[in-house]
Design a protein around this nucleic acid. Structure first.
Length: 287
DNA sequence: CCCCCAAATGAT
DNA sequence: ATCATTTGGGGG
């Protein structure tokens, strides 16, 4: 199976219209041929289609209240049971938790002032900013996702803003997509190694979307630090210790003891940390 | 790998 | 309304 692409698809631009779901799929914009949500409960969702039919949807253009899937009768399409936060709904919840963008496609069957006349139109990237459940018009619970449009410059949490002038829109799209995917696969990997436990305090945070932890770069990405996107430059931390680390509240010594906090860094045998990076962090962020 | 099944389809 | 079809996710 092809790798899931988060962010723009190279050479596909906002406003591009595709004739059918099959053609959308073949262009990798939204791969499932029927399902409205493309994604997995491990990685998150890479794209959704608004195609009408979910009565609790609201389309305000730059803000969309999108209904999750499931609980419907196959023939009548009426809700007959509660939706659960699982499968593709859980995938969208992961986007919210991890700041991943989702491609939005509006179909002509979706009746709003923002839907296209015909076919399926790619409408760019949205962030999932909140999700909750409520009793829908059917009387059964539905999960709702608030989506907000991402700036056309593609600025969001995962992207490192770097000055690389003079290259075309096409190459910028490709670079953006590659960077998201590279960062994100490493994020998943370091969290897997530690099973989402903080390497400093061992805490593991439970949420409705699973476990929450953050991947922290030791030597920061981007100018002027230019730390690499590699596993030996990453830590798995709880948000408190991530903030403390980024702002020099503690540093890591060569023997992995800590300065500024009790204890030492927990390190899994399959995770090799490059000491050059913890030295860099000490030199530049300690008081 | 194989099998099962869901799915906001698309044609009849 | 009905149904053949495609695709991918998940589990064994």
């Amino acid at each position: 199976m092809a790798e899931r692409i988060f962010g723009h698809i190279p050479n596909v631009y906002e406003g591009d219209v595709f004739e059918s779901r099959l053609i959308l799929s073949h262009n990798k914009v939204h791969r499932p041929t029927q399902a409205g949500i493309s994604g997995s409960q491990k990685e998150g969702a890479d794209s959704i289609v608004l195609s009408g039919g979910y009565e609790d949807d609201q389309d305000l253009g730059d803000v969309i209240i999108y209904t999750g899937h499931g609980g419907r009768d196959h023939n009548s399409k009426k809700q007959i049971t509660d939706q659960t936060l699982s499968d593709k709904n859980l995938a969208l919840a992961l986007n919210c938790q991890n700041g991943l963008p989702v491609r939005v496609i509006r179909g002509a069957n979706h009746k709003s002032k923002f839907s296209p006349e015909y076919g399926y139109r790619y409408d760019g990237l949205y962030k999932v900013v909140k999700y909750w459940k409520k009793k829908g018009k059917s009387g059964f619970n539905v999960w709702l996702f608030r989506l907000e449009k991402v700036d056309t410059d593609n600025r969001f949490g995962f992207e490192v803003k770097e000055e690389t002038p003079g290259y075309s829109k096409t190459s910028r799209t490709a670079v953006t997509q590659q960077r998201i995917n590279r960062d994100y696969s490493l994020t998943i990997k370091v969290k897997e190694i530690y099973n989402s436990h903080c390497q400093v305090c061992n805490v593991k945070l439970y949420t409705s979307a699973g476990f929450y932890a953050e991947a922290a770069h030791i030597k920061p990405l981007g100018k002027p630090h230019n730390g690499p996107d590699t596993l030996d430059n990453l830590l798995c931390l709880c948000p408190n210790h991530h903030v403390m680390f980024d702002f020099g509240g503690f540093t890591i010594n060569d023997d992995f003891s800590l300065t500024g906090l009790e204890g030492e860094l927990n390190i899994n045998t399959e995770h090799k940390i490059n000491k050059e990076f913890i030295r860099y962090h000490r030199e530049h962020f300690a008081i």
